[in-house]
């Protein structure tokens, strides 16, 4: 223990164990997979991670608030469908490549709107966010089916699918967008009044109410943020695919929650940060990518991820065992 308290890096790792894990698997795959440690693959990991990662940023806010959002996968699909479909609306037929702009704007607005609906319902009805967003997950997916008629949409404008291949300097544009989003949400959470209130609302709701924080609108803002990020993720995913399928984003909510919990955010709220979440999504991203390179069938990734999730929970419990004061309950 002496060792841990003296070395600042080790002390930091003790508080963020997921980064220790990221480091270990990073070294492991660098040594054992030939194509792992090179610039192109590392960029690739960031791009692959960004889809889940963007949503996880929003989920961190919502979960620190003491809420949860199960509807993000469906929101992602709805936004992707709008982003691809609106481009081909007759109204924008003469806009050339500019037709992408209203499409993306509408898609992002749809995401914000879905988040706003969730947040408003949680605020006004007082029904648990788990139930509200579970309903929304079914409902928004229903909207996707209604809107698309269960068909896939394909982007007719090639500029749209080319976007995902663009680079800024040496960096893929998708990676840059993700990094900017990470920095922005980290700044929001750690530096701004809204961010600090996020901890207050989740850590002690009653205290927050008594201190005059308007808890309802506050939570609604965070739901709108996660809606926006899910929509952004959907738009970027559809540029990568050049299409939007109605089943896009299925089970993403589970991956996202897994990543956020791996990153140390508490389900009960009040605790967590973006650094941890970034570790969580990178852990998943590196595992998938590395195992893929080692040609391990994708099936094993599920088993390993599930086991890791449970193991992290178990270790967390071992290290913070004092909860009952030693009472055998």
């Amino acid at each position: 223990m002496q060792l841990f308290s003296e070395n600042p890096l080790l002390r930091w790792l003790m508080r963020n164990p997921i980064w220790g894990f990221v480091l270990i698997i990073f070294i492991f795959f660098s040594l054992s997979a030939d194509n792992f440690f090179n610039e192109r693959n590392l960029m690739n990991i960031v791009v692959q991670t960004s889809t889940i990662g963007l949503i996880a940023l929003g989920m961190t806010l919502v979960m620190i608030n003491g809420n949860i959002d199960l509807s993000v996968g469906a929101t992602l699909a709805l936004a992707a469908a709008f982003a691809v479909d609106v481009q081909s609306w007759a109204a924008f037929a003469t806009w050339g490549n500019w037709q992408i702009l209203p499409a993306v704007c509408i898609a992002l607005l749809v995401g914000i709107l879905m988040g706003a609906i969730n947040g408003f319902i949680v605020w006004k009805t007082g029904v648990d966010a788990f139930i509200v967003t579970l309903g929304a997950m079914l409902g928004i997916r229903g909207l996707v089916f209604v809107y698309t008629g269960e068909q896939s949409f394909y982007a007719m404008n090639f500029a749209y699918s080319d976007f995902s291949f663009m680079t800024i300097g040496p960096f893929p544009v998708l990676a840059v967008i993700f990094v900017i989003a990470v920095l922005a949400v980290h700044w929001l959470l750690s530096r701004t009044v809204h961010g600090r209130n996020t901890y207050a609302v989740g850590g002690n709701r009653e205290a927050a109410v008594n201190a005059g924080i308007r808890v309802g609108p506050h939570m609604m803002v965070n739901f709108m943020l996660i809606g926006f990020l899910a929509a952004l993720s959907g738009v970027l995913l559809s540029t990568q695919m050049g299409a939007a399928t109605p089943n896009l984003g299925r089970d993403y909510e589970l991956w996202v929650i897994t990543a956020v919990v791996l990153g140390g955010t508490k389900l009960t709220g009040g605790k967590g940060d973006i650094i941890g979440t970034l570790g969580g999504v990178l852990a998943i991203g590196i595992l998938r990518n590395g195992m893929n390179l080692m040609q391990v069938p994708a099936f094993y990734v599920y088993v390993i991820l599930g086991s890791i999730l449970i193991a992290v929970l178990f270790l967390d419990k071992r290290f913070n065992r004092a909860e009952n004061g030693g009472l055998r309950l």
Partner: peptide, 21 residues
């Protein structure tokens, strides 16, 4: 006494993997 939401979420993933394997 681990949290049931997370454990069964992990099991959801692990069992799906088992089926595929």
């Amino acid at each position: 006494r681990l949290n049931s939401l997370i454990v069964t979420l992990g099991m959801l993933s692990a069992i799906q993997g088992l089926v595929l394997i």
